[in-house]
Structure formats: C-alpha cells, structure tokens
Amino acid sequence: MDIKEIIKPENLVYKKTELMTDAPLSYCPGCGHGTAHRITMEVVEEMGIWEDTIGVAPVGCSVLAYDFMNIDMTQAAHGRAPAVATGIKRVWPEKYVFTYQGDGDLAAIGGNETLHACNRGENIVIIFINNGIYGMTGGQMAPTTLPGMKSSTSPYGRVIETMGHPLKMTELIAQLPGTYFVTRQAVHTAAAVRKTKKAIRKAFEIQKEKKGLAFIEIVSNCNSGWKMNPVDANNWMVDNMFPYFPLGDIKVDGELVK
C-alpha cells in the first residue's frame, strides 16, 4: 500500500491540538511538562473555550509556556501567578483563567499567594507541576525535595533537621473551604495521562459552573535535575515520589475524600 493512501483524513487517529504552537519545546527530553501542556490545551480546545481562556505562566522551567500555548497569556513574577490570575479573573469573571506553576514557584516563593487565592476560593484553575526540584536554575532544593534527596543545594541529601520537611502544599490547601476540587495526578504512563486530562477537564468545568478553585498537582520527573535517564527518572518517581505524594483525589465537590 502506498503511504499516501494511509495518510488520508479518514485514517487520522491523532492530531496535535492547534492550541499548541509549532515552537520546539524548550523542555528536556523525557520531561513531563510537554505532556501537561498538551493535555491542558486539548481540554481548552475540546471545551471550545480558547477565545475566552487566559493562562498565567510562572518563573521556572515553564516560564516560556506562552511560547507553546496558542492562547492569550501573561507571564508572572516568581510565585505571583495566583495573584496575577486573581487580578485577571476579578475584572473578567466570564473568562477562563488558569495558572501553570512549578513547586518552587507555587510552594516556596509563592506560598502566600497560593494560600490566599485558594482561601478566597478564586474561581480559577491552578495546575501545579511537582518534580521535587528547581529545574530551570539547575537542580537546587525545592520545598518538595524528598528527605535525603540530593540537589545542588543539598549535595549530601536533604537534612530534615536543618532544611525542613518536604511541603505537601496540595494537602494543605485542600483543608481550606475555598478549594472545591483538589487532586494529585501524574503523566508518566498513558493511563496516568488520561486520568490527568480528565481531572483538568473537571477543573475547567468547575470554573465554568463558578463553583470555586480547582487545584491539580501533577507529580512529574526531572531527569536532568535528578541526573537520570528518562526511564530511570520515571521509575524513581514511582518508587520514591509517589509514596510521599500519593496520587488520587483529595477533595471532590468541596468535600475531603482522603
């Protein structure tokens, strides 16, 4: 069979969403960011809300998210994305507003902005990529770095006595009455990607229905920062990150389920 007969429209099984630009991703091969970007944009496309969706990019590896997401976007100062999103949503309540943040951005420098946006129950979606490390700046310790885990600022491993405990930001904000849907997912397998995409869809539906804040943590790998190949990084994540940051829904319809 000639190849031209195969690549006919009726045989199409997968197509990149138009809401992802053609710019080459700046992420390391094997990183979860690309998948998380894509499924977020697929949800926005499938819901038909791209003309009314405004994204907020953080400081960190995904600082250039606006190069890849083909919608109107604002780049926020480090940690301030929830405040920036609050500003946008309050003056455009009919628009869909989401932030896309890493663990250093959301749980360390932006801890206060995260806590208060969640506590006010801002009607936004927060997508939180947790890879336990500062990726862009070169693998420094994050608030989510595991006990004993090595990073460039914990070169002998994270010492709890002096460096504190890994912060479970997602469990923390789930306690606040302002959050409506809180879940922790991953994108390391096809099944996990499908579940995460479903959670993102649910989050945007909640915003559509003006029910409150939806918060999705995606536990991800950082093969460069962890100094592993992508396969080993994913395995390490399953063996080490998931026990500390267990996957699953934490709060559904405003009720704690875990």
């Binding site: 405004i54 920036v84 609050t86 946008i88 003056v91 902005e113």
Partner: peptide, 25 residues
C-alpha cells in the same frame, strides 16, 4: 472591583494581571 489583597506584593500583582487584561486599575 475592590479587593483587599493578602499583601502589597499580591496587590501589585493583581494590578499587573488586570492591567495586562486591558482594564483600568
């Protein structure tokens, strides 16, 4: 809209977001 922010830092970033969205803030 009038909103009391959690800090001056948050307040100016709310201004940044809303001003970037074309509003008078």
């Amino acid at each position: 809209v009038v909103l009391q922010a959690e800090s001056e830092i948050a307040a100016i970033n709310m201004v940044y977001g809303a001003a970037g969205a074309g509003k008078k803030v």
